[in-house]
Write a protein that binds this DNA or RNA. Structure first.
Length: 269
DNA sequence: AGTTATACCCGGACGC
DNA sequence: TGCGTCCGGGTATAAC
């Protein structure tokens, strides 16, 4: 499922494609995807320019020159394609934004959404989110402070969007593996040295994943060689039973607070 | 404060 | 092959 690196990859690639461009036309094929009547959505979005694209946690924010914004959440299954209609993948799209001969398609949004919001509504929707782990504000000290006061298991803390934002089920497991820590550890039991390793793992795993275009397979456009490059670098996620790349012991699959969780019981402590 | 349950949604997996 | 059924998973919300 798309997490911080996938959305950041989308932000970077889409900014090059449609940053500063005007939306000529809009298609809405599924009304549940949007939050206002389709006529209003079309009227408010068509003819506007995308001033810039921002990311907050797992959301993308398309800032329009009207002052309003489109807030995208892909949830579990959503992805995007940018290009000519004849190259559009077979999968069903729920919304499309058209830019001349090329279009941005929002595909396989189930629980996902594309909401048109006023700045204050946007702020209200996003203000419960925890710190962005790749910003300068997310320091080792901030991370340690958060972890020490937390009483849940490590995995549960990492996927809690109000704790640290942007990390989901895949990267939480990859971060724990990189840190050599069991996802089932209680945060409050972690030693300072271990919290330091956790901080480094959060930063390196997420930034490496951004650099490699995330782990999700669908190319954003024809000729996109970047998106999905991190898939082969995933060490534990969805690799239950496979030998650990560090020590050869089989990767364990276990439910942790009703989530899929993968780890090496030998070299993670 | 943390965990657990429930609803949301529908493509894809599975069973017959 | 074809149809019906069921499941997964991020998030919001409620209940414990």
């Amino acid at each position: 499922m798309p997490e911080l690196p996938e959305l950041e990859n989308y932000r970077i690639l889409l900014t090059k494609k449609i940053g500063g461009h005007s939306i000529d036309r809009v298609d809405v094929w599924r009304e549940k995807t949007i939050n206002v009547p389709p006529e209003m959505f079309r009227r408010e979005v068509a003819g506007r320019r995308i001033e810039r694209i921002e990311r907050r946690a797992k959301h993308l924010i398309f800032r329009l020159n009207s002052g309003k914004a489109l807030l995208l959440h892909l949830m579990l299954s959503g992805w995007m394609f940018y290009g000519q209609e004849r190259h559009k993948p077979e999968r069903s799209a729920q919304v499309a934004l058209h830019f001349g001969a090329e279009s941005l398609y929002f595909i396989s949004l189930r629980l996902g959404y594309l909401h048109l919001l006023e700045p204050d509504e946007l702020e209200r929707t996003l203000n419960h989110l925890g710190p962005e782990p790749l910003t300068p504000e997310f320091t080792p000290e901030l991370c340690a402070g958060l972890i020490r006061q937390r009483r849940s298991r490590l995995k549960t803390a990492l996927v809690d969007q109000s704790f640290i934002s942007g990390i989901g089920n895949c990267y939480s497991d990859e971060i724990c593996f990189a840190a050599g820590l069991l996802p089932t550890r209680l945060c409050s039991d972690l030693r300072d040295r271990e919290i330091g390793r956790l901080y480094e793992a959060i930063r390196t795993v997420l930034s490496e994943a951004v650099r490699c275009g995330g782990y999700m397979a669908h190319p954003l456009y024809i000729g996109d060689e970047r998106t999905g490059g991190f898939d082969e670098r995933c060490k534990v996620y969805d690799r239950g039973g496979e030998p650990c790349v560090r020590c050869g012991h089989p990767i364990v699959f276990q439910k942790v607070s009703s989530r899929k969780c993968f780890y090496c019981a030998n070299c993670q402590q």
